[in-house]
Amino acid sequence: MSFFPSFISDINHQEADWVSIHERICQLLIPIHASLPFVSSEKERKHGMEQLLNRQKYIMDVAQSTARRFILAGEPGKAIPAGLQALRFSVRVHGASSVHVVPAYLLLAEACMDAGYLTQATTYLSQAQWLVLKSPSCSLAVQHKLHQDLGLLHAAKGDLEQSLHHLANDVYLATCAFGPGALQTAGGYFQMAQIFLRQNKTDVANSLFAEVTAIWHAFLLKSVQTREQVLEAQAEASPFDEDGDISEEPLTEAQQTEAIQALNTILDFREKAPKQQPDETAKVLHSLAMLYYLAGDLSKAREMGAKALDLVKQLPQQEPLEAIDHLLKVIDSKPFYGK
């Protein structure tokens, strides 16, 4: 079974292949391609096979993370070769018929879609869909991601109704797996809103954008509160304390990229809308201020927070005023904004 499509056989893609992944794993490939040494006992043989499997798992993980980084960086041409290595070693570790290979297919499909290779993306998603259908025990998390990618593929092909069908399934499965207010559901809502905009159904898109904003706003508000608790605990900590520290779960690179893209898109929609909704615009700005603060971009955090504060002051109900004002004071207390 060949995992290499024809479009990466030319010299440019061979160079991209080396740059994106081979130079990172070439030394790891040597013991895998070498023949297993002669062993005199079953115990030694099992140990050798375990070592080989662990090396293959490690290369699979490296290839997957490398492909994901290139996708987030907007370099799908480099992500494809890394994704192919991830698929190759996923098959070696789990077997070609295992549902555990699906994430590698999805990763490759996403890279191909971003690169404009829709035919190849269709092939990878079809294979992933077939494996999921054959595996009744497949996790809801994997199923939700499959339907999201299928929705994006149909949107890229212009089949908007089929795209909405898959994205609706994406939201339903994400809700079942993670809960209605989870970040995973926000992605499906956001993509559906984009489709409704293409259909000139602005009211529906507006409602979905509000849902996306609410999910991110709640998550980021909690994350900022946790950050403050962590910093406060660290400042008051004694070397003799035995209590566990408050743990902070920072945004992953993928979540941060998704949030910046989604919230800035929604902000642009809000600012250009014929009928202004200052309360919703303020919530998007506050969310972006918190997001940039958590990411360490204090300049942008200050800019978005100040805009949010100005808007809220004009509203009859000013519940978010205190939270936004407090965030700005925290930002101003940092060395970058020190008086």
Rank of each mutant, 00 (worst) to 15 (best):
S20Y: 03
I21S: 11
E23K: 12
R24A: 08
Q27A: 10
Q27K: 10
Q27P: 02
Q27M: 07
L29P: 05
I30F: 11
P31L: 09
I32F: 13
H33V: 12
A34E: 15
S35E: 15
F38H: 10
S40T: 05
S40W: 05
S41H: 05
S41D: 03
S41L: 08
S41G: 04
E42V: 09
E44A: 05
E44W: 04
K46D: 01
K46F: 01
H47T: 08
H47S: 11
M49L: 11
Q51R: 09
Q51F: 03
Q51E: 11
Q51M: 06
L52R: 11
L52W: 05
L52E: 05
Q56L: 10
Q56G: 05
Y58H: 15
I59A: 12
M60H: 12
D61N: 09
A63K: 06
S65V: 02
S65Y: 00
A67D: 02
R68C: 05
R69Q: 07
F70S: 08
F70P: 03
I71G: 09
I71R: 09
I71Q: 11
L72H: 03
A73K: 04
A73V: 07
E75D: 13
P76W: 00
P76Q: 05
G77T: 14
K78P: 09
A79I: 00
I80K: 14
P81G: 13
G83S: 13
L84Y: 10
Q85A: 13
Q85I: 15
A86D: 07
A86I: 07
A86S: 12
A86P: 03
R88T: 13
S90E: 10
S90Y: 05
V91C: 08
V91S: 08
V91P: 04
R92L: 04
R92S: 03
V93N: 03
V93C: 09
V93F: 05
H94L: 00
V99H: 00
V99E: 01
H100Y: 04
H100P: 01
V101K: 06
P103H: 01
A104Y: 02
L106M: 02
L107K: 00
L107F: 00
L108N: 00
E110F: 00
C112Q: 13
M113W: 09
M113S: 08
D114W: 10
D114S: 13
A115Y: 15
A115K: 15
G116W: 14
G116N: 14
Y117D: 15
L118S: 15
A121K: 14
T122S: 14
T123F: 14
T123H: 15
T123R: 15
Y124E: 12
L131P: 06
V132P: 04
